[in-house]
Design a protein around this nucleic acid. Sequence first.
DNA 1: CCCTGATTCGC
DNA 2: GCGAATCAGG
Length: 235
Amino acid sequence: MSWTEERIEKLTKMWEGGATASQIAEELGGVSRNAVIGKAHRLGLKARPSPVKANDKGDTPAAAPAAPKAAKPTAPPPEPKAAAPRPAPAPVAPAPAPRAATPAPAPEPKAPAASADAPAAAPQPRIVSVGPGGFLRQGPGDQQAPIPPAPPRRLVPARPSPEIADKTSLLDLNDRICRWPMGHPGEPDFHFCGEKVNPGFPYCVEHCGRAYQAQLPRGHRRPPPPMPFGGPRVR
DNA sequence: CCCTGATTCGC
DNA sequence: GCGAATCAGG
């Protein structure tokens, strides 16, 4: 199997949608979980919570993690000198968010939660400031991703099929309409919700209620809502 | 053991 | 560029 445009798109969408590499691999078919991860990295879209990377110590005074497995670095240059002289990279170190062209902000469950059965109360994002380019800093934590940059592609193909002629396709997505997926990507009737978004969120009010769940105490959890893409395929 | 993502490296 | 093998944490 090769990475065609369609397959890459599906991979990207699902990856950003929070599906696991295994799920994506199964959905795509013909590829392994590793292939998906490898491709995702090559596409530059990693940056997803990794269970193995929760490790983040602000300081470990004496116990340096070192390299427990200095197994096969191609060039193992143990620093003979005490201090490692930095080769001094370019003085200009711009630190723009490495956000590539990611259409979907990948909702983290940290926004104010609207109860699933009472999505009536629309969480109004508090606009704190306006940044250059006009994007708004908002919401708790100010973690909302900036406005997704316009996709670089200028392809405007015809509708794939008449079935979705009046449905919301990927090409119809913009900042103002709900991008909640309906059905499975790749299937003829796959489309997006298309409702007007809950301002400040990538989804409409109803789907915000699905995307952002309150973290209830153990024992009081209600069953998780169905994931986008219909979740893992049942065969 | 199962799962997860990250990384490496021969192809 | 690709992905199996491997690593490493949960």
